[in-house]
Amino acid sequence: MSQIVQHRPLGKTGYSVSEIGLGCWQLGGDWGALQAGQAESVLQAASDNGVTFWDTADVYGGGESERIIGEFNKTHPETDRIIVTKAGRTPEQYPDGYSRDRLKAAIEASRERLQVEQLDMVQLHCIPINEIKRGDVFEWLAEFKQAGLIRQFGASVETCDDARYCLENTDVASLQLIVNLLRQDMAESILPLAHQKEVGVIVRLGLASGLLSGKMTADHEFAKEDHRNFNQNGDAFFVGETFAGLPYKTGVALAHELKSLVPDGMTLAQMSLRWLLDQQGVSSVITGASRPEQIADNAAVSALPSLDNELHTQLSHFYHDRVRQHIRGEI
């Protein structure tokens, strides 16, 4: 196994996780149909490149992502692999059908698909903030932890206010946040607080749904089932989950502008991921990939040097001067 990916503690969980992780939404076919063996080749590439932190959810492909991971993990076990799943968005629960029994049933189903006796971690999957504030769901998760169904629990959230509430009022061990060069508010206001409270931070959308790959064009057409097609304007779920809340063509143009700040020897994607790894409080940046070579490229960022202070200042100014005004929805 390659050792190029360094590890970091996931808050106070006791887990050591690869600082570049693998997001597994695409393995369920939700970004477009996969060819035979494609998902397995992605997981094998993650294993080969030292990417040991994998993130999935029970609703990705209706459980297909978990099933594929469970089968691969059974036949290719690794002692340092941490598999995190998410719960709370199944039709039986979301948006107002939450109960102890329904959440337990969802966790039991994830255990079965992932083929484990105990889940490494369950995160609430962007459930309504009123349900978070009611608090019952955290009591249920604490009970399931005590009973040995799960080892740790956390929450995936959408906005700074949601994240701050969880940090100040709940016992979450981790938070999963939307942070990237085109959406920096979480980095400025939430990461320092999470670091202070020793809550692990898992970053999603680090490349802004691919905008920060630097390879997208304004006329690109996405597959019908790809959220980058049907959720560009927040028609299906929170608008910030797709292109960081930016109108697609605006995002493409801004990503093109950012290329002028990329250091020699780096790509825009590498600079974007390195910027995230430079943020105090970040435990792992999960990156989606549909091809093995994408895994290797992302993993290599772990070995790159930190960006210099001047560039960090320039990137902050770029966000506030050029980007933030275009973001739609709550930040």
Rank of each mutant, 00 (worst) to 15 (best):
E117G: 15
Q123L: 11
V157H: 07
G62H: 08
E40Q: 12
W140H: 08
R291T: 13
D235A: 15
L277C: 09
Q44H: 12
E221A: 13
Q232V: 14
Q270C: 11
T85C: 04
G14Q: 11
K224N: 10
Q35K: 12
A46L: 13
I68E: 06
L277M: 14
D171G: 01
R291I: 13
G234I: 09
Q26G: 13
T52D: 13
S99F: 03
L212C: 08
A173S: 00
Q325G: 06
R228V: 05
C24M: 04
I331W: 05
R204W: 00
A244G: 01
G97F: 03
E78S: 13
V203L: 01
V51M: 03
G265S: 04
L182E: 04
F53Q: 12
L258I: 03
R324V: 10
S283G: 05
P263W: 03
E225Q: 12
L273G: 04
I178S: 07
H195N: 04
R113V: 08
D48C: 09
Q184N: 00
L149P: 06
Q196G: 00
L149R: 10
E188N: 06
F222L: 05
I83P: 07
G148T: 12
L27G: 08
L119H: 09
G37P: 02
I4D: 05
Q123P: 01
G63L: 10
R89V: 05
V179C: 07
Y248T: 05
L175D: 01
V172I: 04
F222I: 05
L212S: 12
Q44C: 01
G70Y: 14
R113T: 08
N233T: 13
A45E: 06
R111Q: 15
P9Y: 03
V59E: 11
T52H: 11
K215S: 14
E143S: 15
P292W: 10
G206H: 01
R291L: 15
G329N: 10
E64P: 01
Q184T: 01
S41L: 07
N229M: 07
V157F: 05
M266H: 09
L307W: 06
E257R: 14
Q232F: 06
D101W: 06
K224C: 02
W31S: 06
D171W: 01
L211I: 09
L276D: 04
L191Q: 02
G154F: 01
T287A: 07
Q232Y: 08
D162I: 00
D136T: 13
D278R: 05
H227T: 00
T170Q: 02
D185P: 08
D297A: 15
M186Y: 02
R100L: 07
R204V: 00
F222E: 10
E330Y: 10
G61I: 09
P91L: 14
N298T: 02
D235H: 12
S316Q: 14
A223E: 15
V252M: 09
P292F: 08
K104W: 10
D171F: 00
I107K: 03
L207M: 04
A46W: 11
L276S: 07
Q115I: 10
A299E: 03
A57P: 02
S213L: 12
G281W: 04
L276H: 08
S174F: 00
V42D: 08
D30W: 05
G135H: 09
G70A: 14
F237Y: 13
E293F: 13
I20S: 03
L119C: 09
